[in-house]
């Protein structure tokens, strides 16, 4: 396999990993499991499922994007495709 293909595969693996987290915090915790999680409360009186749908998912998205950017930058260097 060529380096370009390896780079692309590593990228795809990273994207899939990130999108799994993306799915879990929003569609998982915020929608599909919202009722179950609402029985737990955080910050005092904020039902957890509602918190994920209104706050937690958004914070996670921010972290995910920076994580992805950081890992991709490392991949760029590793496979020597970084721009000068």
């Amino acid at each position: 396999m060529s380096d370009a293909q390896k780079y692309w595969q590593a990228n795809i693996r990273l994207v899939i990993g990130c999108l799994i987290v993306w799915f879990i915090v929003s569609f998982g915790f915020g929608i599909l499991l919202v009722e179950q999680l609402n029985s737990i409360r955080i910050l005092g009186g904020y039902p957890l499922g509602l918190w994920f749908s209104q706050q937690g998912s958004i914070y996670t998205f921010v972290v995910l994007i920076f994580f992805y950017a950081w890992r991709m930058n490392k991949l760029d260097i590793k496979f020597n495709v970084r721009e000068n």
Partner: peptide, 15 residues
């Protein structure tokens, strides 16, 4: 609206 408008930025950044 909150999840939708913000979650799209992940797709934008990665895809």
């Amino acid at each position: 609206y909150l999840m939708g408008f913000s979650g799209g930025y992940c797709l934008l950044a990665m895809l």
